[in-house]
Design a protein around this nucleic acid. Structure first.
Length: 278
DNA sequence: TTGTGTTTTATTGCCTCC
DNA sequence: GGAGGCAATAAAACACAA
């Protein structure tokens, strides 16, 4: 390995930097600035004790991490906005312009991409969560409506049965549930179904194979989320990603987003399960 | 002033691509 | 096999409440 050599950064910031023969070569041990290495490079110090002198540490040792100046950061930010990947030529140009080592520029971009990704994940989570919350409130409204309609059906059925029993035993015995009641119930089902499927992207809540409203009183929670604008959310993610992300990163990124959303949904499902699924 | 949490800069190890 | 990207992490710098 090309061992790091100390280079005094001639920039106005006076950073002391460890450099290899290229900006990417120095990837050695945690710090080559341990005592032995430093001694090797500073033969004018005759002893370890000398090197340990506080005065030396205060005044002579290479400076520790330095923050970039606001001007440097501004230029880097602008460059990042233009393009978040850094091709070698641009890296060299930026480094020259900023008085930094190319490696520092590369590191800054790497860290900046990581920060961008974190923020982006937060934004997408918020987006999905608000979609979910809005869907949940829609569902709550439909559920209440459902309850109301069911109780209406129930009271009408009762009334009808009372009426038929008062009509006398000489007549045909009524079916367990009168045809009228069933018709009424069917009507209600259709009404609810219409309401739920219209303008919702066609998610049939009372589907043919699924549990029916009157028989089971099962949940109306749809298989998909008709009110949830996940498509739009995904579009948003997609378009933003496309600006500066690869197809692969978008894919893995989306899977992360949806895993998070799914996890959240699962938690909600468990929390609300007592009335969702009972 | 000091303890603590957050942000920024830098390193390391692993992976993919050419 | 080298170059470069990313995730995880260390550590310095910074912010801020007590």
């Amino acid at each position: 390995m090309d061992t790091g050599r100390l280079i005094f950064d001639a920039s106005c910031h006076g950073n002391m930097l460890l450099m290899g023969s290229s900006d990417h070569v120095f990837r050695g041990s945690k710090s080559l600035l341990n005592m032995e290495e430093t001694l090797k490079r500073r033969p004018f110090f005759s002893s370890h004790e000398e090197l340990m002198e506080e005065e030396y540490y205060d005044e002579q040792l290479p400076e520790k991490k330095r923050r970039l100046t606001p001007e440097q950061v501004l230029l880097l930010e602008r460059s990042f906005e233009a393009e978040n990947k850094l091709e070698p030529e641009r890296k060299s140009q930026l480094a020259k312009k900023l008085g930094l080592q190319p490696r520092q520029v590369a590191v800054w971009f790497q860290n900046r991409r990581a920060r961008w990704k974190t923020k982006q994940l937060e934004r997408d989570y918020d987006l999905l969560k608000s979609s979910y919350d809005s869907l949940l409130s829609d569902f709550e409204a439909v559920r209440k409506e459902n309850e109301k309609l069911k109780s209406e059906v129930f009271s009408l059925t009762e009334k009808l049965q009372a009426k038929e029993s008062m009509a006398g035993p000489e007549q045909q015995p009524p079916p367990a549930k009168s045809e009228h009641a069933i018709a009424t119930a069917a009507d209600v089902t259709v009404k609810v179904e219409d309401r739920l499927s219209s303008g919702s992207g066609g998610s049939a809540v009372v589907d043919e194979e699924g549990p029916q409203l009157l028989d089971s009183g099962d949940s109306y929670f749809p298989d998909e989320y008709p009110g949830c604008d996940v498509g739009a959310a995904v579009e948003g993610v997609h378009s933003e990603e496309e600006e500066d992300g690869s197809e692969d990163s978008r894919r893995s990124y989306l899977s992360d987003v949806f895993a998070a959303a799914e996890q959240h949904h699962h938690e909600e499902e468990q929390r609300l399960g007592w009335w969702f699924w009972s």
